[in-house]
Structure formats: C-alpha cells, structure tokens
C-alpha cells in the first residue's frame, strides 16, 4: 500500500524546500558570523541583535517565558546571552525565523513546541543535565520540519493530513508515505543548512530514533521524552502517540519516581492558556 518515493523525488523536495526557507534577517546573520568566529563578548553580540528592535523584543520575551524558569526578570540582551550561552541564542534566533509569524495553521505546532521546550528544560533540571538551555531550544525546534511543510507546501501537508486520518497513524508515518521522508529528516536538512551545533542536531534529527544518535544520545533521548510527555499531558481524542524506544529509559535511567516528578513539574509550568506569538 505504501507508495515509495524515489530518491530523485526526495532530492528534488530537499532542493525546493531549502530554497523556500525564509531568509535569515541581516542582523541574525551578522550575529551568527560573530558567534561562529568564537571568542566574542556577549555585549558585542547584544549590540548587534539590539539593532533590530523586534528581534530583541522576541528574544527577551522568549527568555522571560516559562520555558527557562529563571526566577529574575531578564531585562537586557547582554544578560540573556550570558545566561543562555551563544549556542542557545543561535537556536533562539532561528526559532524567531522558523515561527516568524504564528498563523492559525501552525498554532497547534507552536503550542506543542512551547510545551516541549518547557518540558525538555524540566527533564534536564530533574536529571541534573547541565545543558538545560540548549535542550530547551531543541524542544522548541524539534518539529521545525513540520512547520516548513505547513507553511511552504500546503498541498503536500493536505495530503499528509489525509493519509493520517485514513490510516489513523502518526504524523511521521504519514509524512513517510507522502514525502518519502519525515519531519526529522527535514530537520536534518535545515540544521545542516543553518550550521547548527552538533548537540542541537542530534536532538532534532534523532528524537524518533534515539538508537541512531551516536554522538549525543542524551540529547535525543531528552527530546524524545519531552515530546511524548507533552503529547500525553494534553492527550486528545483519537490521537496516535509516537513510540518511545526503551533506549530512552535506559539512557536517562528513568524510573517511575523520576517520571512522576517530571510530570508534576510540567503541571506547574505548562500554561493552561494559549500562548500566542513570540
């Protein structure tokens, strides 16, 4: 029944998709170049980002959102950069590009991304993983491939949704059938094009195949867990859950007590109300 896409189709899709990706604003490009050069002070980066008022406001809004759980209000970009680190800031800048405008179509994806980001941070803190902020950003971006498909290939998205309803399967299975690839593969294309750090990449690409994450399995495992916990927390009628591999439990050394702790932290932190735009 499954229609296999030929490799040529997939290559074509990749080409078209990467072409359609939104342009990275000049200020972000500049900030990135500086970040990649390394050895640059937070105040310099802050100055560059600060030239774009909207962007600065978005970064500060995200930093002050419940994802990070900083007890203090963070008022300056410099402070945000010192607290979060450059890799995280890079991811945050990207998220403002990917989710530039939260339209009705991607509202659900945005809400899930927010939940997953918050949950990834919670898991990291409960398990004492020090890269909590990077994991938060990975959570925010873990479905960016889906956002791109929805935004730029609505006709393909319509097919995916149809297959999903017909087969009562997960998004990922429906994507495979229609596109020949799934959103995690697309995440990989985007991460490569945008030169994401390797840690972030593993979380984005392997959150459905943790076994394949060789370099940073913990990253992939945390995102996989954050993803499913966010789904179960807001479970809807007829929803098809992705499978979490047993590796996730082993890598993170999970036990029922830890999971309960994570769920009750989620319950305190995830917003009940819709969180509109960044």
């Amino acid at each position: 029944m499954e229609k296999k896409q030929r490799p040529a189709d997939i290559l074509l899709l990749k080409e078209r998709l990467l072409e359609k990706l939104p342009a990275i604003p000049k200020v972000v490009q500049e900030a990135w170049k500086l970040i990649e050069k390394g050895n640059v002070s937070p105040s310099v980066i802050g100055e560059v980002i600060g030239r774009d008022m909207t962007l600065s406001a978005k970064v500060l809004r995200l930093v002050n959102s419940p994802f990070y759980g900083f007890p203090n209000r963070i008022g300056s970009l410099k402070h945000a950069i010192v607290l979060l680190g450059l890799d995280t800031i890079k991811g945050l800048l990207i998220s403002t590009v990917v989710f530039g405008k939260v339209t009705q179509e991607i509202k659900e994806l945005w809400a899930h991304a927010c939940d997953c980001a918050t949950t990834a941070g919670i898991i990291a803190r409960v398990l004492n993983i020090k890269e909590a902020d990077e994991l938060t950003v990975s959570g925010l971006l873990h479905d960016m491939g889906k956002v791109v498909i929805k935004n730029y290939f609505p006709e393909l998205d319509a097919k995916i949704q149809k297959v999903k309803r017909r087969n009562n399967c997960t998004d990922r299975e429906a994507e495979k059938e229609v596109l020949g690839v799934s959103h995690d593969d697309i995440n990989g294309w985007m991460a490569e094009k945008w030169h994401f750090p390797a840690t972030l990449k593993e979380g984005l690409i392997y959150h459905h195949q943790v076994k394949k994450a060789i370099k940073y399995p913990i990253f992939a495992a945390v995102i996989s867990l954050a993803d499913i916990l966010s789904h179960i927390y807001r479970l809807k009628f007829g929803q098809c859950l992705p499978i979490v591999e047993d590796e996730v439990c082993h890598i993170l050394k999970l036990n029922p007590k830890i999971i309960t702790k994570i769920i009750s932290e989620m319950d305190k932190s995830l917003y009940t109300f819709d969180w509109d735009e960044i």
């Binding site: 179960i232 927390y233 979490v244 047993d246 439990c249 999970l254 999971i259 769920i263």
Partner: peptide
C-alpha cells in the same frame, strides 16, 4: 506494550 511506554502510562 514496551517497557518504557508502560512506565509512562502508569506514571500518568
């Protein structure tokens, strides 16, 4: 019915 999924289910 995998071990991990069952643990998540029970916890919830």
């Amino acid at each position: 019915d995998s071990e991990c999924m069952q643990m998540l289910k029970e916890a919830f």
